[in-house]
Design a protein around this nucleic acid. Structure first.
Length: 496
RNA sequence: GGCCCCAUCGUCUAAUGGUUAGGACAUUUCGCUUUCAAUGAAAAAAUACGGGUUCGAUUCCCGUUGGGGCUACCA
């Protein structure tokens, strides 16, 4: 049984890189009928953010990457824990880490260290100066016996627990994306396992938890590669079965540095707020470092589950390219039905003044959907929709000159528009819908020997008040007869 | 500085010891068309560099360069 996990720190919001990591972990588990869990790694009290966990969980849920176990959202959207191997929040597991640290101490696989931060800083400075590799020098291991150390601890002296790395040999593992990776043990630091505040560091906590929660595949970012030997050593000391490791390439800024807030949005909620569809973000992010090896690019989450494999994940970092995300978003947007969009977009409309005058009308999802259908393939995000459809509610101010087609004349328009209005007013066009309007108006214009553009351009501008807009028939259909005629009338008055 | 990793069009990437090095986004041109969008067709665009191995390397090896990660009592 495959079990993967996503283990974020609640330091703010979910990073898009984190979303990809979570997605890959989810896909690996789901592909083989396994489980995906979320664990919260809140051992750093200094960077802890109260709302962090909720934010992360909400973003995951928005994206559709929903955990089977661990820290999850309940039906009411509240944080809860699910599963028998918890707690799944590290700050609730302190006693467990203490127990395992004691075991390590007993086995002499770890030792107490009383060095001050000043001494450590000085040590680092000297190492840098002499161009030596960094890392703790083992002072407390050499200069005090375990018995002494125990006494000092009992006496209340401030201390940490350090991992005792072997000083010879090397640690090698077969990484699922990077192949064989090896480190000389002598260069691996005697990492702090328990901090002086009694909290474990990531390194102890991650190994203990992944073991206890029966994680089979550790999928995480490349930044963890160099600490993996420490983790492997811990597995060896404990005598635990090792999980598979897969270190994912980083997401990059356009200048190839590690994707950061400075150069654009990195939080999943930013993309949500900007009107990107979760399907688009997921599809896009899935293709940053992975592809199926075919030309298929549009992938739903369930299709990803089918086709994803770690072997096809590339080793090099991928630039987060907004243009491509925009394309994905448009691709999904235009395939949405207007009615479905009508459910999604209200949050983007509430801040627009014109919305309030039409709340009643917009409550009719069918009508609202028709309006959205008008513009959905002309915008890239949901957030652009309100401005794009605004002309339906309130015709913009426009200059009479724009009523003239580029191949037509002002005089011509002055004749055509009143004639057309007259025709629409007095003649039976059947039901006032796009199809009928198009058929009847085209017959009319042919009978009058007018060119298509000389009639449709001014009609469209009169209806939309804009040089660029959807076609005249679709607009007229949405507007209805009365409003359409009123707008034609306005145009005619403008021309006088 | 030390350790580790990476390197194909601007970007995401495919491919192979022998290919016209393929696709997508973006760009440009043309078509369709009442405008925009959508759409159809086309163009331009890459194997970082230097050595090997080989009949042949973009592919395998070494080096150089470039980029990145780590180098915390942060994750």
């Amino acid at each position: 049984m495959i079990r993967t996990r996503f283990a974020p720190s609640p330091t703010g919001w979910l990073h898009v890189g984190g979303l990809r990591t979570a997605l890959y972990a989810y896909l690996i588990a789901k592909k083989q009928g396994g489980q995906f869990l979320v664990r919260i790694e809140d051992t750093d009290r200094e960077r802890f953010v109260e709302t962090g966990t909720l934010n992360i969980l909400k973003s995951l849920s928005w994206a559709g990457v929903v955990p089977d176990e661990g820290v999850v959202l309940d039906a009411g959207g509240k944080i809860t824990q699910k599963g028998d191997l918890g707690p799944y929040i590290q700050s609730e597991r302190l006693a467990i880490y203490k127990k395992y640290a004691a075991e390590l101490l007993d086995k002499k696989s770890a030792y107490y260290c009383f060095c001050t931060s000043e001494r450590l800083e000085e040590l680092r400075k000297q190492q840098e100066l002499n161009k030596l590799p960094g890392g703790y020098d083992g002072e407390c291991l050499k200069n005090s016996t375990p018995e002494d150390a125990k006494k000092r601890v009992a006496a209340g002296e401030k201390h940490v627990v350090r991992l005792k790395m072997p000083k010879d040999g090397e640690t090698v593992w077969h990484d699922l994306v990077r192949g064989e990776v090896s480190f000389k043990n002598a260069l691996v630091d005697d990492q702090v396992l328990i901090k002086s505040d009694g909290f474990p560091t990531y390194h102890l906590a991650v190994v203990v938890d992944d073991h206890e929660m029966r994680i089979t595949h550790v999928i995480r970012g490349e930044e963890w590669v160099s600490s993996t030997p420490k983790h492997i050593q811990l597995y060896k000391y404990f005598g635990w079965e090792m999980p598979e490791f897969a270190h994912l390439p980083l997401l990059l800024n356009p200048d190839k540095s590690k994707l950061s807030k400075r150069q654009g949005d990195v939080a999943v909620e930013d993309y949500n707020n900007k009107g990107y569809l979760p399907e688009a973000l997921i599809n896009f992010v899935a293709f940053l470092g992975w592809n199926p090896g075919t030309n298929k690019e549009i992938y739903s989450l369930s299709e990803l589950v089918q086709d994803f494999s770690l072997e096809k994940v590339s080793k090099s970092g991928a630039v987060f390219n907004l243009e491509k995300l925009n394309w994905f978003n448009k691709e999904y947007l235009k395939n949405y039905s207007g009615e479905k969009l009508a459910e999604l977009v209200p949050e983007f409309f509430v801040n627009n003044d014109f919305y309030h005058d039409f709340t009643e009308k917009l409550a009719d999802k069918n009508f609202f959907g028709k309006i959205l259908d008008l513009e959905k393939e002309r915008v890239t995000t949901l957030a652009e929709l309100p401005a794009a459809v605004k002309f339906i509610f309130k015709i913009p101010e426009y200059l009479p000159e724009i009523l003239v087609w580029r191949k037509g004349t002002l005089d011509e328009v002055k004749i055509i528009l009143p004639e057309l209005k007259n025709y629409l007013e007095n003649f039976e066009v059947g039901e006032w819908n796009e199809k009928n309007l198009e058929a009847k108006i085209k017959i009319w214009l042919e009978s009058k020997k007018y060119s298509t553009g000389s009639v449709l351009w001014p009609l469209r501008v009169a209806l939309s008040g804009q040089q660029n807009s959807p076609g005249p028939f679709e607009i007229a259909a949405v507007l209805g007869k009365a409003e359409s005629l009123a707008r034609l009338d306005l145009a005619i008055r403008k021309l006088k």
